[in-house]
Design a binder for these strands. Structure first.
Length: 311
DNA sequence: AATCAGGTAATGT
DNA sequence: ACATTACCTGAT
């Protein structure tokens, strides 16, 4: 089925959005399993001209499947209108030449988005995506379609039982002789010092916080709530709120966004991250999330990033 | 060998 | 409140 809405699927998949790692790529088809209401559905999506062509295997209606794909790839967002807005801003007009048809890649699983985002902090895109894929393979549920295996992200209650590191695993497992044999833990997935943050974050969501409640909050309340989660600072909180909960007014501000915005709007002056975040939210309103996404890729693609390195 | 990767938490003023 | 600093890890 083709959904008539322009998207650059490859760009969107590989844009490092912390909702989830890129889907499994095979023969120009990106696929993954999405679980909703306890039903697993395999989605296969591919680029068809400017649009998205998709199939699915699972016990849901075409209408439900379409709705799910539209949500994950944000296909109801009006790109033309957004580009008109960008073209009227001298600082931003050039961006559309470098990331045309890039869209938000939204969470298929809010908890996965939380943990992915925590894992992405001070990390490289290749490393955190590999870590999340390792976690899925080790502790997720396995689904097999035409002899190909897919793994969902473990749910909260399973995740909180994963050992943090080799020491914790060794203490609990009497069949192991030394910590060196311990490979069934978070740290063995290459997450480094983020392992305890990720684990504590999962514990919070089983004990005192409900992911569904976040959706009902105002942006400000949700932001303050997310800051209480271990491993979640302002940047990660905004990633979670944008990619996981569809708060489009979030403006995740990392060092790059800081450098880019300083360059474009403040004559290269050094302004702290929190001020840049406030500026972005004030200036771009409900487009803040998209502007942030486009700024980052514009800088990557246009060579601006190299120029700004070290600022 | 030092530096870097889309920051955060723990200290120190 | 605001400024510094240590921190897993694998790649260059």
């Amino acid at each position: 089925m083709i959904i008539k809405a322009p998207i650059d699927l490859e760009l969107t998949q590989n844009s490092g959005q912390t909702s989830q790692p890129p889907w499994k790529l095979d023969n120009n088809i990106y696929s993954d399993v999405v679980v909703a209401d306890n039903k697993a559905v395999l989605f296969q999506v591919k680029q068809k001209e400017n649009n998205l062509d998709f199939n699915f295997i699972g016990d849901i209606s075409n209408k439900e499947a379409t709705k799910k794909i539209k949500t994950i790839f944000d296909l109801d967002f009006n790109l033309n209108k957004f580009y008109k807005y960008l073209n009227n801003q001298p600082e931003l007009a050039d961006m559309t030449n470098f990331c045309r048809d890039l869209r938000l890649f939204l969470a298929k699983d809010k908890f996965e988005c939380v943990i992915s985002s925590v894992c992405s902090a001070n990390n490289s895109i290749v490393r955190w995506t590999k870590s999340i894929d390792d976690i899925k393979k080790s502790w997720g549920n396995k689904y097999t379609y035409s002899e190909k295996d897919y793994f969902t992200f473990p749910d909260v209650s399973d995740f909180k039982n994963i050992y943090c590191d080799d020491v914790e695993e060794f203490e609990c497992c009497s069949n192991l002789n030394n910590p060196g044999e311990c490979i069934n833990n978070l740290k063995s997935c290459g997450v480094g010092y983020r392992a305890p943050y990720m684990k504590k974050a999962s514990e919070i969501f089983t004990l005192e916080m409900d992911l569904d409640d976040i959706s009902k909050m105002s942006y400000d309340e949700a932001f303050d709530t997310m800051l209480k989660v271990p491993g979640v600072g302002p940047k990660v909180a905004d990633c979670i709120l944008l990619y996981g909960f569809n708060f489009r007014q979030a403006f995740p501000t990392d060092v790059w966004i800081k450098r880019i915005v300083s360059y474009l709007y403040f004559d290269g002056k050094d302004i702290n991250v929190s001020k840049i975040r406030e500026f972005g939210m004030e200036e771009f309103g409900d487009y803040a999330g998209y502007v942030q996404l486009y700024l980052f890729h514009y800088a990557r693609m246009s060579g601006l990033m190299k120029k700004l390195k070290g600022m």
